[in-house]
């Protein structure tokens, strides 16, 4: 095959993949609180939050997917995708809260064998 045709094919395919790529899907785009069914939370100190399942009814929302957090607490870290002004960032940063649940006396009632 002529090298020029090969190069044109490669460039054309590259454009299809990269030239058409738009803004990354916002994992939370359009997800409504009251349409979300959360799975049982994982209270690991390094755990990700529960994946949110979107109802099938009338949803056009993107399913929320979150990345595992490396911190000791159950907060979520998303890749920073937004260019917000400082005031908006300051406000948004107030919406950060730990989701880990404390232990409640586990281990105090492990049973031992006793006389029959």
């Amino acid at each position: 095959m002529d090298i020029k045709i090969v190069l044109l094919l490669v460039l054309g395919v590259s454009f299809l993949f990269f030239g058409c790529a738009g803004k990354k899907a916002n994992p939370n785009e359009g997800v409504k609180y009251d349409e979300i069914e959360s799975t049982e939370p994982d209270d690991s100190v390094t755990s990700p939050p529960a994946e949110e399942e979107v109802s099938d009814d009338d949803s056009t929302y993107v399913e929320a997917e979150t990345e595992e957090d490396d911190s000791d607490e159950g907060t979520v870290e998303h890749e920073e995708e937004f260019e917000a002004d400082e005031e908006t960032e300051d406000l948004a940063d107030l919406f950060v809260i730990d989701t880990d649940k404390p232990l409640e006396g586990e281990g105090l009632d492990v049973k031992s064998p006793e006389q029959e």
Binding site: N26, P27, N28, E29, V31, Y33, I36, S38, P41, P49, A50, E52, A64, T75, V76, H78, E81, F82, E83, A84, D85, T88, E89, L91, A92, D93, F95, V96, I97, D98, T99, K101
Partner: peptide
């Protein structure tokens, strides 16, 4: 409460995304 905590954390991204 876990649903509420997670929703609270999610609002952060909604605020940033709409800025």
């Amino acid at each position: 409460g876990m649903d509420a905590l997670e929703e609270f954390n999610d609002l952060r991204w909604l605020i940033l995304e709409g800025a």
